[in-house]
Design a protein around this nucleic acid. Structure first.
Lengths: 213, 213
DNA sequence: GTCTATAGCCTGATAGAC
DNA sequence: GTCTATCAGGCTATAGAC
C-alpha cells in the first residue's frame, strides 16, 4: 500500500531530479545532488526508485504524457490561422510554465535522443505527419499562406522552446527581469505575417495594391 | 618548438574532442572516448593538453573567436532588409557547416552557461545591443517593419540553430535524407514577410499602397 | 613522444543497524 | 523507512619505462 508520505517523497524526489537533470544532463547529474535537493539521503532515493536511470525514466515518462497535447489540440474544424496561432501560444505558455521540462527534453535531443528515439520515430512523427496533412489541406483551400508544414511546426518549436532552453543566455543579454517579456507580442506579429493568406509584396518590387490571383 | 606532428596531433585531439563534447556535454564525455576517437592513448592526450578542462576550454575559445562574425558583419550602410536576410543566411550556413560547434555551444547554455557567462555578458551583449540600436534606427527611418530588435535577433538564433541542435529529432520526423532541406526557402519567406516595411494587411484590414514616411 | 600501470577520487548501488 | 558505512567500478591525472 502506498502511504501519503511515500507519495510525497516520490514527488519530492522527482521534483529535485527534474531540477538537477534539466540543469546538468543525465550524466552530469549525481544522486548526491538530487538527494541534497530533495532533502533525503542517497540510499533513501534508491529505496523509492531502483536506480538513477529509473528516476530519469520516470521524469521522461511524465513529460511525454503531456508533451504532445498542444499539437494534438489543433482542431481541424477551427479557423486555420487562429488554430496555428493558438498552438504557438500554448507552446510559449509551456516554455513559461515548464522551462525545466523543456530543458530536460532539449538535453536528450541534443545528445542524440538515445532514450527518446522510439517515442519520436513513432508517436511524435505520426502526430506531426497528421498535422502536416491538415495544414496542407488548409493551404490547398487557400485559407493559409503556402508554407512547408513541417518547417512551420519546427519553427514554432524552435521559437517557443528557445526562451526556455537558452534562458541563461537571454537573461545575460536582456536587461529585463523577465527574459520572456515581449516574446508573445513578437511571435504574434511574426506568425500573423507568415500565415496571412494574401502573399506579401515580393523583395524588391513595389507593392501592387490589387490582390493578384 | 612545435613540430608538424605536434600540430597534427593537437588538431586530431580537438576534432575528436569536439565530436565527443558536442554529443555528450562536458561531464558526459570521457577522455577514453576522446582518445579512442583521436586514435591516441589517454596519457598522450594529457601530454598535449593539461587537463580535460583545458581541451574543452580550447574548443570554446576556437568557437568564440568566430561565433560573433556573422552578427558583426551586418553593415550599417547596407540595405536593412538585405542585411538582416544575409545575416540569417550566414547563421543557417553555420548550422549546416558546423553543427557540432552549435551543439557544443547549446550544451553550455542549456546547462546555465557556467563557462560562457563572462563572454555573453560582455562581448556578446555589447555586440547585440549595438546591433539592436542599428535596427531601431532603421525602423525609425521606416526602412524596416517595427519589430523588437532583441527578439528579432533571438528569432534568427532560434530558427537557424534549431536545425543543428535538434538535428536528431528532425531526422527522425522527416523522411528526407537532408534534415535541412527546404529550411532556407522557408526562413527566407518567414523573414521577408516579417521585415517587409509596409505593414502587411493587419488581420482583417486591406493594405494601403502609399509609403508612410 | 608515446606507451603501460596505477594512484586517488568520485559515483551508483548495497548491506545492515535502528 | 531512513540512516551510516562501504563496496565496486569508472574516471581524471600522474609515474615511469622505453
Amino acid at each position: 500500500m502506498t502511504t501519503r508520505i511515500q507519495k510525497r517523497n516520490r514527488r519530492r524526489i522527482l521534483d529535485a531530479a527534474l531540477e538537477v537533470f534539466s540543469a546538468q544532463g543525465f550524466r552530469g547529474a549525481t544522486l548526491d545532488q538530487i538527494a541534497a535537493e530533495a532533502g533525503l539521503s542517497k540510499p533513501n532515493l534508491l529505496y523509492y526508485f531502483d536506480s538513477k536511470e529509473a528516476i530519469h525514466g520516470a521524469l521522461l515518462q511524465d513529460l511525454l504524457a503531456t508533451w504532445l497535447d498542444p499539437l494534438r489540440a489543433i482542431d481541424a474544424r477551427g479557423e486555420p490561422r487562429a488554430e496555428i496561432m493558438a498552438y504557438m501560444r500554448r507552446k510559449l505558455q509551456m516554455s513559461r510554465e515548464y522551462p525545466r521540462e523543456s530543458r530536460l527534453f532539449a538535453n536528450e535531443i541534443l545528445q542524440g535522443a538515445p532514450r527518446l528515439s522510439d517515442f519520436i520515430a513513432t508517436e511524435l512523427k505520426a502526430l506531426v505527419d497528421d498535422r502536416a496533412r491538415l495544414i496542407r489541406r488548409w493551404i490547398a483551400q487557400g485559407r493559409l499562406a503556402p508554407v512547408d508544414p513541417h518547417h512551420l511546426i519546427f519553427s514554432i518549436w524552435a521559437l517557443t522552446q528557445h526562451y526556455a532552453d537558452f534562458d541563461a543566455q537571454i537573461r545575460l543579454i536582456r536587461d529585463s527581469a523577465d527574459p520572456m517579456a515581449g516574446a508573445e507580442a513578437f511571435l504574434e506579429t511574426l506568425f500573423e505575417r507568415l500565415l496571412a493568406p494574401e502573399p506579401v509584396a515580393p523583395p524588391l518590387t513595389p507593392p501592387v495594391s490589387s490582390p493578384a490571383g
